[in-house]
Design a protein around this nucleic acid. Sequence first.
DNA 1: TAGTGGTCTAGACCACTAT
DNA 2: TAGTGGTCTAGACCACTAA
Lengths: 254, 254
Amino acid sequence: MNSTSSNPAADPAASGSPSFRPLYQQIKALITKSLQAGEWKPGEMMPSEVELAGRFKVSQGTVRKAIDELAAENLVVRRQGKGTFVASHAEERAHFRFLRLRPDEGLPHHPENRFLEVKRIRAPAEVARLLDLKAGDAVVYIKRVQSFEGKPTILEELWLPGQLFKGLSAERLVEYKGPMYGLFETEFGTRMIRATEKIRAVAADAATADYLKVPEGTPLLCGERVSFTYGDKAVELRRGMYLTEQHHYQNELS
Amino acid sequence: MNSTSSNPAADPAASGSPSFRPLYQQIKALITKSLQAGEWKPGEMMPSEVELAGRFKVSQGTVRKAIDELAAENLVVRRQGKGTFVASHAEERAHFRFLRLRPDEGLPHHPENRFLEVKRIRAPAEVARLLDLKAGDAVVYIKRVQSFEGKPTILEELWLPGQLFKGLSAERLVEYKGPMYGLFETEFGTRMIRATEKIRAVAADAATADYLKVPEGTPLLCGERVSFTYGDKAVELRRGMYLTEQHHYQNELS
DNA sequence: TAGTGGTCTAGACCACTAT
DNA sequence: TAGTGGTCTAGACCACTAA
């Protein structure tokens, strides 16, 4: 396949792209668009490489390279002999991808959740800025405490665009088993695919100390996370206070 | 190339591997061995794909896939039209790979260094355990304070295997411009390729508070890093106390 | 046995860099 | 112009899964 081919996607003039763009990148973009549109739902198998190659009129190798990158970005999961599947936060293996807080020894446990508040409010300026909304736009506000083995360890506040999370209620959150991100993608069609996190050390204020049952002034990890869905659209702001007396934040540098 | 080929690396019996192992993985291992042996030094260009394909008696595509993975692991850097180069910590672009502490606004600056101690000691049990040494083995101990714009921000302690870092002195550290990892790879032939980090929040003790010129009890980020070289061999333990009043630890989740 | 992803090859051509 | 990495193809065969 080259630029003299009849394949429209490979023709820069037809694609409207002024500069050279590899075919497999264009295929990747098309597949991503289908993922975003929900053509194949999380957990489902997507069409085989051969089938996609036929649909896009390119070789299987080109589809392969496109899917390789999607797999590297955790958007899809390849399973030899079975097929390629849309990644899902509902799967066990995905649970710890965004959960970096680990007990000092042993394997991570699933925390017990206690929801303190779930309500719709108008976005404060700072929240609106980070979520790319207008100040005053509706957002869902969630406040919860997570405990490990009965010990309160995480105090977390979340802000979600109200537009995308209509009908999200405390009942629904409590009743859903598994990670919140699973609920978000299953019930609200919003899948988190990456996030940025800023971490600092702070002293517990009176209210936080009370929730975590520690003395005021106790040093806590403070993490601010902004999560993004397809198209680098910010869809979650999360501020967490982490008690790190028996836990630590684990990170791999490479 | 298939299992009936005359290529010894592709023959499981000849390679001594009982189970199936892709050819490109074997090639990757061979190239890694050459990197480890210093056949090509950091910053140097390594042989072209065609040349390596000839040497290993495989197709260029197979070498390509091997190098693709090495590039993904930051062991080498590809430059179109030029060649493939051995990655180096001495290069500007690598400076911030392991440096996650950022100023709250603006781009990261290079800190000013003040070395408080550089000496050879016997490894305490805990250090020996993490570096896979025997308690009492010689280690180089380094203690330093890093300041940004004159403000002390990081108090760091390092332990390095004495065996690998003979002749490392305060003078050499002070005189070397650029990141320590650059010095380590240039002068001591030890290249850090990945690390694990555990982070928690702690209160500054009297000594630390003094170094960082903050009140005792100030919340600090405490990071413990173990760095590894080729073959997943631990070669550095680093414990840092970070003042996060004007800085934060930045992380990308994906 | 059929279908899927995974590996490997050989060859053509493109984009980029240096000379 | 020559050499490098980057893209794309077509086809063969392997490993794994499920019916």
